[in-house]
Computed example of a mutant assay.
Amino acid sequence: MGENVVSEKADAMLKGQAEIWETLFGFVESMAVKAVVELHIPDIIHSHGSPMSLFQIISKIDSPTDETDTKCLARIMRFLVRKKIFTVQTSSSGAETLYGLSRSSKWLLHDAEPSLAPMVLMQNHPWQLAPWHCLSRCVKEGGVAYEKAYGCGIWDFAAKNPEFNKIFNDAMTCTASVAMEAVMGGYGEGFGRFGSLVDVGGGNGNTMAAVARAFPHMKCVNFDLPHVIATAPVHEGVSHVGGDMFVSVPKADAILMKWVMHDWNDEDCVKILRNCREAVPEKTGKVIIVDVVLEQEGNGLFDETGFLMDLVMVAHASGGRERTELEWKIILEKAGFPRYNIIKLPALQSIIEGFQE
């Protein structure tokens, strides 16, 4: 009996050690994925139309040099095959290993839609990694990780840094595209009931462009900070308006906010929602929030990612967080939306509708 107890304890300690090793090197997978996205390797294989050897891939990499290291790439690909980012097979002659796209790497194509390649590049950029080193300081001292790293919040950093502003907006565009594909599939006809719609924090306007194409009768407004609107492209049927959602929101039948509320603390969210309430018709107006709804015991495809995103908010947002259904209910009620409805989507986000009565 005693030997069994000792054996169980030893086994538990060994498993614990293995789990910590894997956790402490968790960044390796993300960095390896970033490397192949930067090298356009998924695009190279996709354009080829079939699995490729390392030497074929190397020959297509932009601006290869005599120093290009095939062995280094082989080690990266071996790891990512193990992580099921790429597939592997042996050539018909048996002489070469051929790498192909998996269901995961198909999301890493630069010019495809939907794609998460811009998000990979943004989240793993050195600018975005520095605030993560401030998490323990946030616990000890309070405050915002981004401000500890750079002396300002992420929005001010983007406003002062055009290069980062582009990287950030590209990432937000790709995630908006992914989310809106699910939204249009799961809620699209709901937009058709409105004569006008404002996308608050709509970035470059791609979301409103999709809505305008589906519902040409609708007045579609893309609303964001002036420096964001300044670089937004022209979209047929979409008006770009610059401003500050903490001051006022353009009037419309309904307000759309996708992945905006999670950037802000509860007090700020209530301010934004109250401005939205002022912007929509009394009684019939509504807010349509596309955001994560955390489920503590959830085991769905995206539930784990929701909790990861909550820590991303600690690192990158000004007090932002992902929220449970109860937390959404509380801020909606405080802002004057006493009734709500949650619509699950085949996506990371859900739809939270807020009604005035």
Rank of each mutant, 00 (worst) to 15 (best):
S115W: 02
F86V: 03
A74Q: 02
S92L: 09
E96R: 05
T68Y: 13
S104D: 12
V81W: 14
K83P: 01
K106H: 13
M77W: 10
S102T: 02
T65Y: 07
D66V: 15
S105R: 04
T70P: 00
S115L: 09
L73F: 11
D111V: 07
I76A: 08
A95H: 07
L109I: 01
S115N: 06
G94R: 01
V81M: 13
V81K: 14
A112T: 10
E96T: 00
T90S: 05
R82W: 11
E67A: 13
A95N: 10
I76T: 13
T97N: 05
R82F: 05
R78N: 15
K71F: 11
S104F: 14
F79S: 09
I85P: 02
C72F: 14
K106F: 15
R82D: 15
D66L: 13
G100Y: 01
C72S: 14
E67S: 13
P64R: 09
K84G: 10
E96Q: 10
R103Q: 13
S91M: 01
T87I: 04
K84S: 15
G100N: 00
L98I: 07
T90R: 03
C72I: 14
L108M: 10
Q89T: 06
K83I: 10
E96A: 02
S105E: 04
C72D: 12
G100A: 08
F86T: 05
L98Q: 00
V81T: 15
R78V: 10
A112V: 05
Q89A: 08
E96P: 01
L108D: 14
H110F: 00
W107F: 11
S102E: 06
E113T: 12
K84M: 14
